[in-house]
């Protein structure tokens, strides 16, 4: 493939990245505001950061958010892989279509509907609202997105690859672990990160299914928004952002060192 990048396309990428990050830099910029609002920069101050570090409740909420995101992505990725395999291996076209349609229902449904119907479901099942109901819901709405990320990888995998492995005497498990999974792993990682994104972003579903004593960051921000967002939330976002940013970069370079083939993608 053409490996050169012309200056014009470089500029294009720079603009895209600039736009993607602009609101975030805006938030971070105002976290250093000594005033109280996001439209009038009065002077530089670290006051909001100081306040943030004294707020244990907010810290617990941040931890809640992260743990729900991580666990739900983990479980939904595993179930999602199984689901994608089930759809892929369905022999009849109708079964495949039916499964796919069911799969996509949760993607199309507005969050409010998902939240409301899950709330009814949990009420009927007698699940207490709190950590487990939120975790279950996040797993539930992340599964279809993982399936959608993994499925294209499965379809594009040539069946002869599996046949070849079979001919060489590989068992079903070997075919799975040595041929299929490595092949689709970019899709799996993509699915995991998408699930993480959905979970971190979700407000409406969590809002419905959470009870007292458990809150996530987005729910907290929505209830704080009544008075205009306090700038310690900006400070929090700044810290979280820099933290994830650093984590992503470090993670990338570690995997690069350990494994020259980035994330299992075959290179030619």
């Amino acid at each position: 493939m053409d490996k050169k990048i012309t200056p014009l396309s470089k500029l294009f990428l720079v603009i895209i990245f600039f736009i993607l990050y602009a609101p975030i830099f805006f938030l971070i910029f105002y976290s250093f505001n000594s005033g109280e609002t996001m439209y009038d920069f009065e002077g530089f101050s670290l006051e909001w950061y100081r306040q943030l570090f004294h707020d244990t409740r907010l810290f617990i909420i941040v931890l809640n958010t992260i743990v729900v995101a991580l666990l739900s992505s983990l479980f939904s990725t595993i179930i999602g892989i199984l689901g994608a395999l089930a759809i892929h291996m369905a022999k009849r076209r109708q079964t495949k279509n039916a499964l796919l349609s069911f799969n996509n229902v949760l993607i199309v449904s507005p969050d409010v509907i998902i939240g409301a119907s899950f709330l009814i479901l949990f009420t009927m099942a007698g699940v207490k609202l709190g950590f487990y109901s939120v975790l279950l819901s996040h797993i539930a709405f992340s599964i279809p997105i993982v399936v959608l990320m993994v499925l294209p990888k499965l379809t594009e995998m040539s069946p002869s690859l599996i046949d070849a492995a079979r001919d060489l005497g590989a068992s079903s498990w070997d075919v799975m672990s040595k041929v299929i999974i490595p092949y689709i792993s970019p899709g799996i990682f993509a699915g995991f990160f998408m699930a993480l994104t959905y979970s971190l972003d979700d407000f409406a579903v969590t809002f419905f299914v959470t009870g007292n004593g458990f809150s996530t960051l987005s729910v907290e921000i929505y209830s704080l928004a009544r008075r205009g967002i306090s700038l310690n939330i900006n400070a929090l976002s700044a810290i979280l952002f820099l933290f994830t940013f650093a984590l992503v970069v470090i993670y990338y370079f570690i995997t690069q060192r350990n494994k020259p083939n980035d994330m299992g993608v075959r290179k030619r």
Binding site: M1, D2, K3, K4, I5, L13, F17, L20, Y21, A22, P23, I24, F26, L27, M38, F193, L196, T197, L200, D201, F203, L217, S218, I221, Y222, A225, I229, I233, N234, S237, L240, F241, T244, F245, V248, V249, Y252, Q256, D262, M263, V265
Partner: peptide, 26 residues
Amino acid sequence: KTKHKQLWLLLIIVPSWINLLLKAYA
């Protein structure tokens, strides 16, 4: 076509981890 393409891809996703309402306010 970039050198560290997986890294750049991750960096495209990172902004969506910041809360939507906050970005809307921004």
